[in-house]
């Protein structure tokens, strides 16, 4: 069998096997030092090189170029994570293509070898290939034109600032609170002491758990519709709203915020957001309309107790989970 064909099959079949069977193994939920997608990619590259060397396939330069280009395409399209926007993808692929071209035109010999099959196809020495290419290309161009002209509409992408800069002070129920120096009046003890305590059952024994129970009660009467029973932002109404409700389990929300920031956000809700945070579509109520100040602080206390996060405070670097 033609060595070039074998080399091609080694690449294509190998890619299919790697992508469908081995890729899932290398993308577990918990990413490790070995089991990650980049190690997987290096393994695939090593597989291609080693099989070609061992079998002494010496694929023609045009095919090698195709492999190199294909590896780049595969990496940027499927391996690189998180996925990149298509504009960036095109930029990367242009650079990758230039690199591939430099590789084949590194000296006149390889460049001529690279051109040989192309020229032979064009002048008709590979008659069959010529007929196929000459018929297929115009049809492809026609389809591409159709696809480009066919009007298609996607809703506009809207960016918003998730954590807007807080104001210096906020006025709730007639009292002004400076955000920098306000603390939760119900945080009367170290939260970790109550990790294994029971709401309701321990409410009489510990004052802290009394506040947690009261906060939880308010949460499950008002907030769980959006923020969810698991506080993960997947409540029964969450799919309706855009922006989607905040996920308190995520290390990027309450874990990195001060309690006073939460107090401001809870009290003023969606309408209290600055314009860059799209106040017009946030379903977060200004809770000062429904809850009193103490209830707001208790809900905040509950959210930290439930998730195990610690609020950010001044003088420390951040929160621990």
């Amino acid at each position: 069998m033609n060595k070039g064909l074998i080399s091609f099959l080694v690449f294509v079949v190998g890619l299919a096997v790697f992508h469908n069977a081995i890729f899932p193994i290398f993308t577990p939920k918990e990413i490790g030092w070995v089991l990650n997608r980049y190690v997987y990619f290096l393994l695939f590259v090593a597989y291609v090189i080693i099989t070609n060397l061992i079998l002494r396939l010496k694929p023609p330069i045009a095919m090698t170029a195709l492999f190199v280009w294909g590896l780049g395409f595969y990496f940027y399209k499927f391996v690189l994570y998180p996925p990149i926007p298509w504009t960036l993808f095109i930029t990367y692929m242009v650079m990758w293509s230039i690199g591939t071209f430099l590789f084949i035109s590194q000296d006149p010999e390889t460049f001529r070898e690279f051109r040989k099959p192309i020229v032979k196809t064009i002048v008709g020495e590979y008659k069959f290939a010529q007929i196929i290419v000459m018929i297929a290309m115009p049809i492809l161009v026609g389809f591409a034109t159709y696809n480009t002209i066919y009007p298609s509409y996607q809703e506009p992408v809207e960016l918003r600032t998730v954590h807007p800069a807080p104001p210096a002070t906020t006025k709730v129920h007639g009292k002004t609170y400076p955000l920098e120096s306000t603390n939760n009046p119900f945080r009367i003890d170290e939260q970790d002491n109550y990790k294994d305590s029971f709401p309701f059952l321990d409410a009489d024994k510990h004052e802290y758990m009394k506040y947690v129970t009261e906060g939880g009660t308010i949460f499950f009467q008002n907030c769980h519709y959006c923020h969810g029973d698991q506080l993960n932002g997947l409540g029964m109404f969450s799919h309706v709203f855009n922006p989607t409700p905040a996920n308190f389990i995520d290390p990027g929300t309450i874990a990195m915020l001060q309690e006073a920031f939460l107090f401001w956000r809870v009290s003023k809700g969606g309408p209290g957001l600055p314009n860059e945070s799209t106040p017009w579509s946030s379903a977060m109520p200004p809770w000062e309309e429904h809850l009193n100040t103490e209830e707001i602080w208790k809900v905040i206390l509950f959210e930290y107790w439930y998730t195990g996060w610690h609020p950010r405070t001044f003088g420390t670097e951040g929160a621990e989970g």
Binding site: P138, I139, V141, G142, F143, A144, T145, Y146, I149, Y150, P151, Y153, E155, P156, V240, F241, N242, W280, S281, A283
Partner: peptide
């Protein structure tokens, strides 16, 4: 209530859709 959606009044399909692809081919 729903959140804000978008609506768009799509134009008629352009005539160029039918003559441009053969021309390009």
């Amino acid at each position: 209530i729903s959140t804000w959606y978008y609506t768009i009044l799509k134009p008629a399909l352009p005539a160029s859709l039918y003559y441009m692809p053969p021309i390009m081919a």
